[in-house]
Simulated scan of single mutants.
Amino acid sequence: MSQGSTGNVIAAVCSFFIPGLGQLVQGRLLAAAVQFVLAGIVWAITLGWFGWVVHIYSIIDAARYKGPGY
């Protein structure tokens, strides 16, 4: 997938709703699990104040993913 491709846009939208879901759509299971768990931990520890940082990182990561071998 190239940056800005339809697949990346769909993945970014998925990550908007649930952190890591876009990575899961892209087939990146480890990245999806790490981002989902990390977002949950940060949301819980900071009582909702800084969970959005991981959430936004997840969106950007899904949108900028270039695929294996790039």
Rank of each mutant, 00 (worst) to 15 (best):
M1I: 14
Q3F: 10
G4K: 11
G4S: 07
G4T: 00
G4F: 07
S5W: 11
T6W: 11
G7Y: 08
G7E: 04
N8S: 06
N8I: 04
I10P: 02
I10C: 05
A12W: 06
A12D: 03
V13Y: 06
F16E: 04
F17G: 01
F17M: 02
F17E: 01
F17R: 03
G20I: 07
L21K: 03
L21C: 03
G22E: 01
Q23L: 14
L24G: 12
V25D: 11
V25A: 09
Q26V: 09
Q26M: 12
Q26A: 14
Q26E: 12
G27F: 08
G27P: 02
R28P: 00
A31F: 13
A31P: 10
A32T: 14
A32P: 05
A32Q: 05
A32Y: 07
A32W: 03
A33P: 04
A33D: 06
A33L: 15
A33E: 04
A33K: 13
V34C: 12
V34R: 10
Q35H: 13
Q35N: 15
Q35I: 09
F36Y: 10
F36R: 08
L38W: 10
A39Q: 13
I41V: 14
V42Q: 04
W43G: 03
A44M: 13
A44D: 00
A44V: 11
A44K: 15
I45M: 07
I45Y: 07
I45L: 03
I45T: 15
T46R: 00
T46P: 05
T46V: 03
T46H: 02
G48L: 14
G48E: 13
G48K: 09
W49F: 11
W49I: 08
W49N: 09
W49Y: 13
F50Q: 07
F50T: 10
G51M: 05
W52I: 15
V53C: 05
V53M: 05
V53A: 04
V54S: 11
I56N: 10
I56F: 14
Y57D: 01
Y57F: 15
S58N: 12
I59R: 02
A63K: 05
A63Q: 02
K66G: 00
K66H: 05
G67E: 00
P68E: 03
G69L: 11
G69T: 02
G69C: 05
Y70I: 00
Y70C: 06
Y70V: 11
Y70D: 00
